[in-house]
Amino acid sequence: MKGFRLDRLPGLAVLSAPLVWAVLFLFIPYLIIFTYSFWLKKYPTFIPAFQFGNYAQIFADPQYYQVLLRTGKIALMVTGLSLLLAYPFAYFLVFKVKSSRVRSLLYMAVIAPLWVSYLLRAYIWKTILGSEGVLNSFLVWTGILSAPTDLLLYNQFSMVVTLTYIFIPFMVMPIFTALEKIPRNLVEAAGDLGVPPWGTLAKVIWPLSLPGVIAGATFTFCLTFGDFIAPMLVGGPDGVMIANVITSQYGAALNWPLGSALAVVLLIIVLVIIELSDRLQRKDRIGLG
């Protein structure tokens, strides 16, 4: 018979600390939100119930899927733009910069803003894109525009720009890592077999960096999908995203049940995306053995 061994206790303790943490700060809050999502809104606040009215409302009232669609669209644009900028940058760092000192310096330059407050970084874009902002002043000064344009700020464009700027490190990091992991002799082998550099990029480097691309895209998409600060700071009247709607249900509308139901929907969407990305990555990683 296997007796209970006292010396196993410390090990159990080490394991249980994160477990307790996860239960306290993840599962219980999720459970509470999940519970609330079946409650009923009733003046002045809301009452316990078990009913699907909140979910029904989300699917019946066009305002919710309108916002969900818009959020998805903006998240996609941010992901696409980040990828468009991050990939060439990471490629340049890994394959073109010879000095490892310069490389880590440039890498840090992209990552460092993560240590600057989100609000501050978003705020910077207000001063750049505003009607009397830096960019408008420049465009008018150079004569490209005769009068400042309103098109730069308080719309979806400014949200995409700001969110891209804020979340692009999460795209650069996994792509950089993936590119760095590609054995250099594979690139040489492709060249040796008569494939010019852009062909090598398309046939060897890109497919081998896909796990990094997928990870980066998942990060930026999910982070954008749940963002509510950029719409507040640089978004215009057409900039409300799903997290803002949730915030207002918890706040102005004092409708926690509906807010919770929306949060559950948001959570499900994000989980589905993470699961899909995980499967994709696993499929791609087989190759690297």
Binding site: A189, P207, L208, G287, L288
Partner: peptide, 8 residues
């Protein structure tokens, strides 16, 4: 070390 393309 052969440098075979692992994804092909």
């Amino acid at each position: 070390d052969y440098a075979l393309f692992p994804h092909l």
